[in-house]
Design a protein around this nucleic acid. Sequence first.
DNA 1: CATGAAAACAGGTCTTA
DNA 2: TAAGACCTGTTTTCATG
Lengths: 159, 159
Amino acid sequence: MIKRLRYENGDLDAVDLRILRMLVDDARASVAEIARSVGMSAPSVSERIRRLQEGGIIEGYTIRINPAAFGLPLAAWLRIRPVPGQLGTVSEILRDIPEIATCDRVTGEDCFIARVHVGSVPDLERVIDRIIPYAMTNTSIIQSSPVTERLPMPAGAND
Amino acid sequence: MIKRLRYENGDLDAVDLRILRMLVDDARASVAEIARSVGMSAPSVSERIRRLQEGGIIEGYTIRINPAAFGLPLAAWLRIRPVPGQLGTVSEILRDIPEIATCDRVTGEDCFIARVHVGSVPDLERVIDRIIPYAMTNTSIIQSSPVTERLPMPAGAND
DNA sequence: CATGAAAACAGGTCTTA
DNA sequence: TAAGACCTGTTTTCATG
């Protein structure tokens, strides 16, 4: 059985998925180029992209940054477990730490998972020292990335 | 003391940082618009963007996807610890699971940290079932995101 | 197919090492 | 004086009706 991806305006078909993959890969690919690749006219592709935006599937356009290239070669995941009563404080501190590139609130023993980019181990220590008064932390240095940011897909989707 | 962001071709100044922030926020902002915002001519901004690309700081252009909008409303972080001797196998399996949007190899007790997007709890179970023969897993459902993907910055940077 | 906007390009000026 | 950064005007490309 084939799974169908749905959104408010109807089904996403294989062409939509190919368009999305191309845009994830290179958001500056021209409409003409995408059209050629999927075998459609440029206006048709243009219209599909418009619908993907209005359906909220494409939230926006952004750049991929290489933190190492501007002096932040050390990346780590921090798991953060606030001491009772300090959850709000910790949340605010995390937002205020500029080295944190992303942070999610999660279920389970840890309350937050944050990705940090720093220049050195002492810099990492300084980041942790800002959190440690209000939470227990657990740090994992990123060594490599077997899967870099890509379009998630349900198993057996209609692509 | 002001920290200076360095890259191979020299220093990044405050204007470069503003350009990067604008592009992270909206990679389709026109050069003219960015130029107006930073108080420069379009060609100057264009030249700076070119240098940021050639310096490897801007790795590429991409789109922000909302997985919930196309039928994957449930997101989770998986921590994965392969049983001895199965690290390579696990790494391959993780690459093959289409629901995994990103996966890092890390130091510490866990070997991998992966973000998955699925349609339902049963779908999450199916993902975990593919991994469990070769590794111990620990799952944290994402509830919210106090910090959404942003440009990391050293404390006290020259912006 | 035509129109309008936006980006790439070329040439000229000013500052600074 | 030479190099680099920026600005103005022009051309060409691309998205859109």
